[in-house]
Nucleic acid binder design. Structure first.
Lengths: 355, 355
DNA sequence: TTCTTTTGTGCAAACGTTTGCAGGTATCAG
DNA sequence: CTGATACCTGCAAACGTTTGCACAAAAGAA
C-alpha cells in the first residue's frame, strides 16, 4: 500500500521532479511548460493555469545546476579569510551572509589559516568551482599577489577587504586603520603616558603598516619620539601565542620598559591580556593597555578594556554589496571604489591614568 | 598589439576552456579527449600525451557545474546554525570546513538567527540549491521538526549536531551535556556552596534539558534539594542581553539569593560575567560562577573562569565525517550512530571557596 | 476565396560532460 | 587471402533548462 514511500526510502538520491515530468503529465512539450512557468506572453492563460497547478501539485523546483550550466553563473560567492573562529572575521562573515541571503546567493567559505600556499589553493578551488566572484582578505604570509591578480585579469570579480593586496585594480574596503591606532595612542598620551609600545601584526599586512603609521603620528604630534625598541611585530599575529608572550617579555625586560602598550589586532589584544595576567601585571598600574578588539570582552576584563572596535558586520555587508554590483553589472566596471569605514573608539578603564 | 588583453578586459565572463576547445585544437572528438583525460584504457598513449599536454597548455579545468548536472551531485554540503559569530559555532564550522576541504567539498553556511521561520527557509533554500547533504543544529524557537523530517524522508542526507531534533532517524552528535553540568555543579558543591542557581537556554532545546538534568542530579547526589526559584531560562539564550540581566536580577533579589551560579551556555556565561561586573558583584565572594564557555576568555577574567569547554572543532569534524559517509554510501544506511563527545572541565578560580 | 496577422505550440540546439555502442584500422593466425 | 582479434576513435544520448525558429490553426481583412 505504500509503494511510494518504499521507493523513496530505497533511493538514496532525492529524485526531483523536472519540467519533463510536468510536460509528460500534461501532454505538452518541455518548451511550453518552461514558457508557462516563466509566464511568457506566448502561452495561453488556460495552459499556464494548468501548468502552474501541475507544478504546484508535483512540488516542482527548478534545478539550479541546470540553470547554472545554461546561464554560466552559479549564484554563489566565495570567501577567503585567514580564520573563521575569530570574532572579527566571523562578524564579517555574518555581514556577508546577510547580504548574500537577501539576494539569493550562496556563500562558500574557505580559510587560509594564514598560509600563503593554502590561500592559493583556496582561491584556485573556488574559481574552479565556478563561483561568480570572491571576497578576499589576504593571509599573513602573503607578499606575492599574482594568484589574485591572475584571476582578476581573467575577469573574475573580486573585492578585497580589510587586509588588501596592493596593485589590484578593484573595489576595496578597509577601516581607517590609521585613525584607529592614532586615537588609541593619543588616548594613552592624554592620560599621561609617554613610554608607549606597539604590538603589531606581520609587517607584510596592509593593516599593520597603516596602524603603525597612526601610532607613530600620534607620538609625533605630541612631541614624543618613536623608539624602535618599543615596536614589536608578531608574524603570525597571535595564531601562535608564544610569539606574543615572547614580544611582551622583550618589552618588559628592556632597561627602560614601556608604561603602556597599544595592541594593533584582536588576537594581539587577547594575547596581551593573557600574558599580563600570567605575569601578574596589573592594568593600568603596572602597564596600561589599549587595543583593537571585536570580541565581546571589553566589559568582562578587570579593569574594563578601552578598545578600538572595527565595524566588521558593516564591512562584510559593504564588501558583498560591492561584489554583487560587480557581478551583476551589465558592462565592464572600470571605476573602482576604495571605501573606508570608521572604527569606533570605546573608552573604558584600561588606558586610564595611574592612580 | 594587445588584442587578447583587450578581449579579456571587455568580457565580464571568465571564458573557461572546455573539452571542446581541446578537441578542436587537436582535431579529435570530445569523447576521445574526455577519455584521454580520465586515463581510459581505450586511448593510445600517444593520444593521451597529446591531450594532456594540450590541456595543460590551455589550462583546462573541468566544469564542475556540468559534472554536477550529469552526476546529480554538487559536492557541496549545507550547514544551518543559529549564528556564525559565536565562538562555539565558529569553532564547529572550522571543524566542518577542515574535513570538507580535505574531501573536496564546498561548505555553504546559513544562519537561522534563532528563528524557526528562517530555519525553514534556510533548509528549503539549501535543498533547492542541490546540496548533497546538510548539517543542522536547530534554532531556539524550533519545536516542530517537520521541515527537517520532510527533507530527510525525501532522501536528503542529514546529520544533527549539538541541538538535535527528536524523532529523526539519522546520525546525531552531541556532547555529554549531562556530564558537563554535573561536573560544574559538583565542583561548586565541593567548594562548599549549597545555594546554587542555574541559568539555562530555552527549554525547547535538547541541550537545555540535558544540562539541567545534570545540574539537578548533582544536587541530588549531594543531598541538596532542587529549588525551582533557582532555575531560570533565557528563551533567546543570550541573543538578547536584557534577558540575562533580568534573570540574574530576579535571582539576586530573592529573599534567599543563591551563592553560586552555573551558566549552561556560552552566551549565558558571558552575559552573567558582564552583569556581575555592572552590578559590582565580586566573584567568587559575592557570587561564585562556573559556566559553559568556548570563547577564549578563561584567562582574562578576574578571577580566571572555571568552565566547561565543549570540543567544538571535533564535533564539527565528526559531524562532517558522518555526513560524507552518508552521502557517499552506495547503499541506503539504516543503522544510525549517536555519537557523544566528552566535554572538558577546566578548573581555574571562579568557582573556588570563599575566602 | 485568398492573403495576412495573431495566437499557441513544438522542435532542436545549446550549456560541458560522460559513456554505450558502433565503426574503423591494424595485426595476426590459419 | 580470409577471418578473427585486438586496439583506437567518434557518434549520439543523457543530465534539466531556455529560447530562436518554424509551423499550425484560427481569425481578420481584402
Amino acid at each position: 500500500m505504500n509503494a511510494e514511500f518504499e521507493n523513496v526510502c530505497h533511493t538514496m538520491k532525492f529524485e526531483a521532479v523536472t519540467i519533463k515530468d510536468i510536460a509528460k503529465a500534461l501532454g505538452l512539450s518541455t518548451s511550453t511548460v518552461s514558457r508557462a512557468l516563466r509566464d511568457s506572453y506566448e502561452i495561453s492563460p488556460e495552459t499556464k493555469k494548468l501548468v502552474l497547478e501541475c507544478a504546484e501539485k508535483l512540488n516542482y523546483r527548478p534545478n539550479p545546476v541546470a540553470l547554472s550550466l545554461k546561464e554560466r553563473k552559479t549564484r554563489s560567492i566565495g570567501v577567503v579569510v585567514c580564520e573563521i573562529a575569530n570574532s572579527f572575521f566571523s562578524q564579517i562573515i555574518n555581514g556577508i551572509e546577510s547580504v548574500a541571503y537577501d539576494r539569493g546567493y550562496n556563500v562558500i567559505i574557505s580559510q587560509s589559516h594564514e598560509s600563503y600556499d593554502r590561500e592559493v589553493v583556496d582561491l584556485q578551488f573556488l574559481s574552479s568551482r565556478g563561483v561568480d566572484g570572491v571576497l578576499v582578505s589576504v593571509s599573513t604570509e602573503t607578499s606575492d599577489y599574482e594568484h589574485i591578480s591572475n584571476l582578476h585579469s581573467k575577469g573574475l570579480p573580486i573585492v578585497l577587504f580589510d587586509r588588501i593586496a596592493p596593485g589590484i585594480n578593484t573595489h576595496t574596503i578597509i577601516i581607517d586603520n590609521f585613525k584607529g591606532s592614532y586615537e588609541a595612542t593619543e588616548h594613552l598620551i592624554h592620560n599621561g603616558y609617554k613610554k608607549i609600545a606597539a604590538l603589531c601584526p606581520s609587517e607584510f599586512l596592509s593593516i599593520s603598516s597603516e596602524r603603525l603609521a597612526g601610532y607613530k603620528e600620534a607620538l609625533g604630534a605630541n612631541d614624543l619620539k618613536v623608539n624602535n625598541d618599543y615596536i614589536k611585530h608578531c608574524f603570525y599575529g597571535g595564531m601562535v601565542f608564544s610569539e606574543i608572550e615572547e614580544a611582551i617579555n622583550q618589552l618588559m625586560t628592556l632597561k627602560d620598559p614601556p608604561e603602556a602598550i597599544v595592541t594593533l589586532s584582536d588576537k594581539l589584544t587577547l594575547g596581551a591580556l593573557k600574558t599580563f595576567k600570567r605575569r601578574g601585571l596589573k592594568i593600568p598600574d603596572d602597564i596600561a593597555l589599549v587595543g583593537f578588539s571585536n570580541a565581546d570582552i571589553a566589559e568582562i576584563t578587570d579593569p574594563a578594556l578601552t578598545f578600538v572596535r572595527q565595524p566588521a558586520f558593516e564591512m562584510g555587508k559593504a564588501a558583498t554589496e560591492l561584489l554583487l554590483q560587480l557581478i551583476e553589472s551589465k558592462r565592464p566596471v572600470t571605476e573602482f571604489e576604495k571605501r573606508i569605514l570608521s572604527p569606533e573608539f570605546i573608552v573604558m578603564e584600561s588606558g586610564n591614568s595611574r592612580s
